[in-house]
Design a protein around this nucleic acid. Structure first.
Lengths: 191, 191
DNA sequence: CTGAACTAACTGACTAGTAAGCTTTTGGAG
DNA sequence: CTCCAAAAGCTTACTAGTCAGTTAGTTCAG
């Protein structure tokens, strides 16, 4: 099973675009057509459709953290601003009319079986976001960084759900406001 | 198209149970088998599978508000406690191992086309929850009830997403804690 | 007798995944 | 620079199953 080839990259890109835009009912044939790849090539690179989806989701998660890390770098030395970085990225994403929620959340909602790779991908994403929020909350001086992190994760997920039906981008602003208030509350009680 | 018959009720109940437990890939044949209803009867009552799903989602939303209204009644005269009622209901629901998120959110994530009834159902649910939160926030003395309502809605949606992968029920407690903090913050600035 | 539901079979389209054989690309050895 | 073999990908066709939705004729109760 080849690991890094142009066809594989094109498949993952097409899968991500199609599944994100039209949902997980999209057929493998549609993906191969978009990727300009022959169908047997799919099964030379991936064990199954679910395997392709799982791999694609892992990459999508990695891409998000690459983007987020770059933003954190820009706010180096300012932990409170860093805590808001994920919400600022969402503020930028949501107004796009092509925004259809989070590809990771949508996949977990579409594949309810706990064994499906989509559930593992979302659980991993949550764990990584929680760890990041907790580290930044500690650096920002929160009294209970773990608790604040879990609250921020709720806002983070909530934005993506409301982004499914509310295309004004207002949800991301609301989350930013709420995150600011929760952080202020957590640091106030800390001093 | 008959409107209220036993077969119709059984179909809606079976559809709700199956689509919630196994996702929207479940076939009409599986639904008819569970409902003990013949397949042509489905199309005597509903225009299509999507129509059945849309009708079922509307009923699910109504059922939630029936349950919620009863809880609000029990807390009559205590607006701050009433604001927390939705979160308390979620606290009770999430630890169930059969909890697989919110049937409305899951449907909207599975059917991304804006024309699909699932999107309309979720938008309606959000509008109703927002209106309720705003009324209770006003009665609880929040400075900006509309803003607080939108923040609480984010927590409400966030819980359901985290409930997809985290089966401990902790998410609902976190949301309750965050909602309490946001409410305190909003009423403090009001006085 | 009317309407609701039933049985059973069917259409037509779509689906994931596989098989067999041919063509292109690529990278190292002479 | 050239040649060659292996890897990667292609085309075409196929299996075997599933699915939404329909048709026609039957049963049964009020």
């Amino acid at each position: 099973m080849p690991r890094h080839t142009p066809a594989r990259e094109r498949l993952l890109k097409a899968a991500r675009e199609l599944f994100y835009a039209e949902g997980y009912g999209v057929s493998i044939d549609a993906v191969t057509e978009r990727a300009k790849v022959a169908k047997p090539t799919v099964y030379a690179h991936f064990k199954s459709k679910d395997d392709l989806i799982g791999t694609m989701l892992t990459l999508a998660c990695d891409d998000w953290f690459t983007e987020l890390d770059a933003e954190l770098e820009r706010r180096d030395g300012d932990p409170p601003a860093q805590l808001l970085a994920p919400f600022d990225l969402l503020v930028a994403d949501l107004p796009d009319p092509a925004y259809h929620g989070c590809i990771l959340v949508n996949s977990a909602a579409a594949f309810l079986s706990p064994q499906h790779p989509a559930n593992h991908a979302l659980a991993t994403h949550h764990a990584r976001m929680l760890a990041l929020f907790e580290r930044l909350a500690t650096e920002a001086g929160a009294a209970q960084p773990a608790g604040l992190a879990r609250q921020l994760l709720l806002l983070y997920d909530g934005v993506k759900t409301r982004g499914l039906v509310d295309h004004t981008g207002a949800a991301a602003h609301d989350a930013r406001t709420a995150a600011t208030a929760l952080l202020a509350d957590a640091t106030k009680r800390s001093s």
